[in-house]
Simulated assay, not measured.
Amino acid sequence: MMMDDVLTRPKAQIPLIFVVVIIIVVSARNYLNKGLHKYPGPFLANFTDAWRFYTVYRGKSHLTLRLLHDQHGHIVRLGPNALSFSSPEALKAIYGLNNRLTKASSLTPDSMNGAIC
């Protein structure tokens, strides 16, 4: 009787172990995503956007952003895929007209041969 409990109990925990492993893998992937792990920010922002959602929900995200930039500098990580820039020079690099980002030649109308997009 006691031996049956010992043998069946690990089988019942397999779904829980599976969920924990998935959470760890997704968290690690979010943390290391696209090399953004090198930028400072709140700890939870490395793994999830829930931190940013909470600050916006409270209605004080602009104050939080100011404090984060004062604490960490011109570039702050706000989520696994999000950075915030406070430097005016960054605006030209990101949104500038002459930012050296060009369309691929395969996207020109001549190369599409009448394809409908």
Results as ranks from 00 to 15, higher is better:
1 M>G: 05
1 M>A: 06
1 M>W: 09
2 M>V: 12
5 D>C: 11
9 R>L: 15
9 R>N: 15
10 P>I: 05
13 Q>A: 09
18 F>A: 10
22 I>E: 05
25 V>E: 03
25 V>I: 03
28 A>P: 08
28 A>H: 07
29 R>G: 11
30 N>Y: 00
30 N>K: 02
31 Y>C: 15
33 N>K: 12
37 H>W: 11
39 Y>R: 08
41 G>V: 04
44 L>S: 11
44 L>C: 09
46 N>C: 02
47 F>K: 02
49 D>T: 08
51 W>H: 01
53 F>D: 10
57 Y>M: 09
59 G>A: 01
61 S>Q: 14
65 L>P: 05
66 R>K: 13
69 H>S: 09
69 H>P: 07
73 G>I: 01
73 G>A: 02
76 V>N: 06
77 R>P: 00
78 L>D: 06
80 P>N: 00
80 P>A: 04
82 A>F: 01
83 L>Y: 07
83 L>P: 04
83 L>V: 02
86 S>E: 13
87 S>F: 05
88 P>L: 02
89 E>C: 06
89 E>N: 07
90 A>D: 09
90 A>M: 03
91 L>N: 10
91 L>F: 06
92 K>Y: 11
92 K>V: 12
94 I>H: 07
95 Y>D: 12
95 Y>L: 14
96 G>C: 02
97 L>P: 11
98 N>H: 06
100 R>W: 08
102 T>G: 07
102 T>P: 06
103 K>S: 02
105 S>D: 10
110 D>T: 07
111 S>G: 10
111 S>C: 05
111 S>Y: 09
113 N>V: 13
115 A>L: 12
115 A>D: 10
117 C>Y: 15
117 C>R: 12
